[in-house]
Design a protein around this nucleic acid. Structure first.
Lengths: 145, 145
DNA sequence: TAAAATTTAATTGGGTACAATTAAAATATA
DNA sequence: TATATTTTAATTGTACCCAATTAAATTTTA
């Protein structure tokens, strides 16, 4: 029954559930993020800002696995919403430094319920969640060589 | 040291490695898929076509977790490349039936090396891969309620 | 030091991804 | 059966995501 084409079946791919799961999780976030008027990409960018207060686009890109082609428009939107400031570094004019604003800090308190609400949607035991987290990070590290 | 904002740290999210991992895996596919002139979305659509030979857009969407807004342009491109045909069902004119062509079948032989090459990039043991596969599918099932 | 190479962010263009709307066809209901 | 509802794909508009290119600033090298 097994033939050489079995490796090309969707059900035999590891990558597909990864792709589908990621997409569906982001979709699940949407109603929660709508309440604070952020997209998922804007949300993870703000997570970095809440923690670091000030980063260059380069650093932010390394944290999020995104390049300036994606980040530039995202950051311009966050700036337009008043959550961050963007200015060139005085020491090195190539660097664009992103700084969190007071409004951005305030948003943190409105976002704080999201992780728990999101966790409730993911129906796995906490040991499984740890396992999944570790496996994903292992794959991620492996991909970087 | 722990504060209430810890839940909003990127490193404490399960969803972020999922998002990042999915993105990086798809990026890793790119050079391999370039050789057969397919994008990742076109590739998974062709996987379904190789297996089923004929499906409606609705069925395809259920397999791939994608809607017609995404699939319509993807399928038009695959049709332009000569890998599939698109025609309305005679029994139910609402349904658009996608059929694989001979060219589409031929492509299968060129794609057959991709899963193994991709597997080599994912640096985890096979038991871990199984574990990851099962966890992802569990989360995916849980999200659908 | 002057020229070459590198680094950084922005821009451009192609390809998704999805919510909301539209339109046609089929089914259900009064 | 005529109307209302539902189903299906396509379209529209917004937002990524990335490779490749560009341009400016910095660093390296001859």
């Amino acid at each position: 029954m097994a033939d050489k084409y079995d490796v090309l079946k969707l059900e035999n791919q590891l990558c597909f559930p990864l792709y589908a799961c990621s997409k569906e999780v982001v979709r699940k976030y949407k109603p929660m993020l709508d309440e604070i008027d952020l997209t998922y990409t804007q949300y993870i960018a703000m997570m970095v800002m809440w923690e670091k207060k000030e980063v260059s686009v380069k650093e932010l890109g390394e944290c999020l696995f995104l390049d300036s082609g994606t980040l530039t428009p995202v950051l311009k939107k966050l700036e337009a919403k008043g959550y961050i400031n963007r200015q060139r570094s005085k020491e090195d004019e190539r660097l664009l430094v992103v700084t969190i604003t007071l409004e951005g800090e305030k948003l943190r308190d409105r976002a704080i319920e999201i992780p728990e609400k999101m966790g409730a949607c993911i129906d796995i035991a906490s040991e499984e969640a740890v396992q999944l987290y570790q496996l994903l990070n292992k794959v991620l590290k492996g991909l970087e060589e």
